[in-house]
């Protein structure tokens, strides 16, 4: 299966129509979710009134922050074991985008936290700290890649760091969980099913789907650019050899 997806030509052909589709459907879902979230659904006084509407950006961003780090780790593992170039291209493209969504999650969380909990930031809160360190892991990954002088070295160093980071993420999560939290517990994915009213849940899920699709579209565009950059570099090297 990997070797089917590992072919850059097939990827270019597939993403040629898949990326625009993801953008279109993703934008529609985000727009519908925002419209529902900001204007249609009733405000929840318990969650701080109108400010809870930031949830329709905050929660999808948090999902994507975690999902994109998992994707980065999986792509790094595939590259490290099977050396499929496309997996490295995917990892390189995911990292900066993941950092952006993680930053969105932190920023919207602070904006939500100030009126409801009375603080922008709480140092002993497990979830905030986990997400902050996720951001540092992404930034470290990008910085490490940028400091390597060849593409091959950047790929190998990045893969090692992403995998070490993946081993540490549960450890970091567990350690900060030991300290009590003011953040609410999970309310969408729980053992007893969603605890949230359907009127909020549906726009939230649609918004999450929209963010995921849009993120996927951006990753594909970034990967297409990287594939072409590498092709240009190869052609340039070949023409220098020929001259």
């Amino acid at each position: 299966m990997w070797s089917y997806f590992a072919n850059p030509h097939k990827f270019l052909r597939l993403s040629d129509w898949l990326a625009p589709t993801f953008y279109a459907v993703g934008a529609l879902c985000i727009a519908w979710g925002l419209w529902q979230g900001l204007w249609v659904v009733p405000k929840d006084e318990y969650q701080g009134g109108d400010i809870m509407r930031v949830m329709f950006i905050h929660v999808p961003a948090a999902w994507l922050a975690m999902a994109s780090y998992s994707a980065l780790a999986v792509a790094s593992f595939i590259w490290f074991v099977w050396r499929h170039e496309l997996a490295d291209i995917a990892a390189k493209s995911i990292a900066p985008l993941g950092a952006v969504w993680t930053a969105i999650c932190l920023a919207t969380g602070a904006i939500w936290g100030k009126p409801t909990w009375g603080t922008w930031w709480q140092w002993n809160d497990a979830r905030m700290m986990s997400v902050l360190f996720l951001l540092f892991l992404f930034l470290g990954y990008v910085a490490l890649r940028a400091s390597m002088d060849t593409r091959q070295k950047a790929a190998r160093a990045g893969a090692i760091l992403a995998m070490v980071g993946a081993i540490n993420v549960p450890l970091i999560k567990f350690s900060v969980d030991m300290v009590e939290s003011i953040h609410q517990g999970a309310s969408v994915i729980t053992a007893d099913g969603p605890k949230m009213a359907a009127v909020y849940l549906t726009p939230l899920l649609i918004s999450g789907l929209g963010h995921s699709l849009f993120f996927g579209g951006l990753v594909m565009t970034s990967m297409r650019t990287e594939i072409r950059e590498r092709r240009i570099a190869r052609l340039r090297a070949a023409s220098l050899e020929g001259a």
Partner: peptide, 25 residues
């Protein structure tokens, strides 16, 4: 990881500090 990087010191901190979290906590 930063053995071949010039001025690797800053990079080491960037890479290692998130890994220090469980120990510090």
């Amino acid at each position: 990881l930063s053995a071949t990087v010039r001025r690797g010191g800053l990079l080491i901190s960037m890479i290692a500090l998130p890994l220090y979290v469980p120990t510090a906590v």
